[in-house]
Every structure is written in structure tokens, then in C-alpha cells.
């Protein structure tokens, strides 16, 4: 039994009176791609954002490599370097070029010397196939290219796990493929990933496990065949029927 890289235990999150996450238990092991599906508003983003403490859980534990990072007194900045995050809206820094976007945290958070940071950033851009776009600003890049830069930015820190929150939802359909291709390569390189997405085809081919969330809880989980081929709960069946329609 390998120790999970990331584990959520009894995770709850309320905004005011409203309980958005009603007790999430989830273990993600090394090299695993956990794929999260569920209707809009079911708490998928909130769960991801609790993983790197962008959102502080109301109660419960977030264990990263065996340590509860949701405990009080944990210094979050070093912890967050271990958890890469990719956003639906890319969130690239518009005033920096691609290389600057990727190298900023390497220089300012990891405190690498400028040359070394640039080298590592260039290598990360190379891995997402954008070496020749290093000097382009976000406004000069397509959506797909921007998201690949954002992946490079997260990846360059060599995190233990990467979180993807609907990484292709803001993209024109013809640009989705290039981003999924990069994610596929990451997975093949052994990266541990938690992916929230509606790309069911990608889930079928790449996910080790599919997790269905509804109303702030994990309702059902299993392999892609189990979840898509033989959904047990009526809520999952209804969700999949809506997706297919």
C-alpha cells in the first residue's frame, strides 16, 4: 500500500451558512490521474482550491505527502510550490512574456538565480512545445498556447501533484486537443494529477479513476469503464444522460 501523495479527509467547506463541501474523503496516489466530474455548482472547484489552501477548509484535513497542510501554523508558500494549479481562465501575467510567466516563481519563490530560472523555464516551455514562443506575451498567444504556458508555469516548479480546474473549458474546440496532448504527456511522465473536466473522451483514455461529485459530496467513483459503462447511482446516470444529450 503506497502512501497517498494527496489525501482529503473529512473535508468540509462552508461559505457563510451554506455548506458547499459536506465531507470529502479522497486519496490520490503517486502517478495517478484522478478525474473529477459532476454538475456545475457541485463543489469541484472548491474542492481543488482547498487542496492548495486557496480556500481554507472549514474542517477536515488536507494531507500532502503525509503532512496536514490545512493545520494552523503551516507555512503555505513552500507547500504551494509542491502543488501546481492550472485554471480555466489561464491567468497568465499579461505584463510578462511566456518565459517571464514561467520563471517568476522559480526566481522569486524558489529563489533560483536568474540564469538557472530562465534555463528551467525554457525547458518547461520546450516540454509544452512552446520553446519558440518564449518571448511572446500572453496577448500574442492563442488560448491553447496560453494554457500550455500556464501548465509549464505550474510544472516548472516540479510539484508533487498538479490540479487542473476545467483546463479546456474556455478554449475554442479546435484548441482543446493541444492542451489535452500536453496533459497526456505529463501523465505518461508520471505526474500525479487531479483533473476537473468535461472531456469525457480524455477521461476514458487517460483517467486511472473517475470521481463523480454532486452537491458537495463524492457520490460514486471507479474506473472509467465502471463510471461510464455501469453507473450505479441514479444521480450519476442522470448526469451522464445530460452530458450525452
Amino acid at each position: 500500500m503506497t502512501l497517498p501523495i494527496l489525501e482529503l479527509a473529512g473535508l468540509r467547506k462552508s461559505f457563510g451558512e451554506l455548506e458547499i463541501l459536506t465531507g470529502i474523503d479522497l486519496k490520490v496516489t503517486k502517478g495517478e490521474l484522478a478525474f473529477v466530474i459532476g454538475p456545475s455548482g457541485s463543489g469541484k472547484s472548491t474542492m481543488l482550491r482547498c487542496c492548495n489552501l486557496l480556500e481554507r477548509p472549514t474542517s477536515g484535513a488536507v494531507m500532502l505527502e503525509g503532512r496536514n497542510i490545512a493545520a494552523s501554523g503551516v507555512r503555505l508558500d513552500p507547500v504551494r510550490r509542491r502543488i501546481g494549479m492550472v485554471f480555466q481562465s489561464f491567468n497568465l501575467y499579461p505584463h510578462l512574456d511566456a518565459l517571464g510567466n514561467v520563471s517568476l516563481a522559480l526566481r522569486k519563490s524558489l529563489k533560483l538565480p536568474r540564469a538557472e530560472a530562465a534555463e528551467r523555464a525554457a525547458a518547461a516551455l520546450e516540454r509544452v512545445g512552446l520553446a519558440e514562443r518564449a518571448r511572446h506575451h500572453p496577448a500574442q498567444l492563442s488560448g491553447g498556447q496560453q494554457q500550455r504556458v500556464a501548465i509549464a508555469r505550474a510544472m516548472a516548479l516540479e510539484p508533487a501533484v498538479m490540479l487542473f480546474d476545467e483546463p479546456t473549458s474556455a478554449l475554442d474546440p479546435e484548441l482543446v486537443g493541444e492542451v489535452l496532448a500536453v496533459m497526456r504527456e505529463l501523465r505518461e511522465a508520471g505526474m500525479t494529477m487531479v483533473v476537473v473536466s468535461h472531456e469525457m473522451r480524455f477521461a476514458r483514455e487517460a483517467a486511472d479513476r473517475v470521481i463523480f461529485m454532486d452537491q458537495g459530496a463524492i457520490v460514486e467513483q471507479g474506473t472509467a469503464e465502471e463510471i461510464f459503462g455501469a453507473p450505479k447511482s441514479s444521480r450519476l446516470q442522470a448526469f451522464l444522460a445530460r452530458q450525452a444529450a
Binding site: 513552500p78 510550490r81 494549479m85 485554471f87 519563490s109 508555469r153
Partner: peptide, 11 residues
């Protein structure tokens, strides 16, 4: 989103 992207990389 700019704050979150930056904070998520450990700044």
C-alpha cells in the same frame, strides 16, 4: 485570478 495564479506558485 492573477493573485491566485501567483499565490498558487508559492509567491
Amino acid at each position: 485570478g492573477q493573485w491566485e495564479a501567483s499565490r498558487s506558485t508559492g509567491l
